[in-house]
Amino acid sequence: MNAKCVGEIMIPLGLFPVVPYWFSLHQALAQQEDFEAKRSEHGPLPWLILVFSAQNQLLGIVGRREILKGLEPGFSPKQLGRASDIAIPLQFDITVYRLSFSEETALKRLRTQMGRPIVEFITPIESTVGYDDHPLLAIYVMINLNLSVVPVVQDGQVVGIVNAEDILRGVIGDIT
């Protein structure tokens, strides 16, 4: 059995939006819009923004979840003002949240956060897989580092992204 290598399953880098680390969230999201068309053209692609250093080195990856997670403190109860005098840390409680929620304040806070640098939202790159590696190696990385995508490196340079769904489809396809 000759399983496909990671490089054959990966999504080429050019299909993802890339931004420098100092871009604001607002600028990065705008960038993401440009790739909506590409996403529908190439079938389902993961919603990702790749963030690069001044040396054009891949610093990290930002997905929707990372963005929402980064923004969440902006509209969580302890940040909403009404509950700011509560001394003890709040446990997750939707009721408390509902009570203290003000759409106007929350949106205002959100808007101010759009100027934050994208680098604050990234999941830093901790590991990569090689272009010729077996896809299961990528699965191993993902499970151990709690990732859904991993950068693929060829000749010392990042050339694409491989995601868990594609690997699964590829590997299961091979088994069956």
């Binding site: 050019g14 690069f52 250093s53 054009n56 680098v119 830093p124 010392g156």
Partner: peptide
């Protein structure tokens, strides 16, 4: 202004991706 950039975890592995691969 210009924010300082965070130091990448592994500089060696991720150089110049955009310039060459694309």
């Amino acid at each position: 202004g210009w924010p300082s950039q965070p130091v990448p975890t592994d500089l060696k592995g991720f150089v110049a991706v955009i310039g060459t691969s694309m």
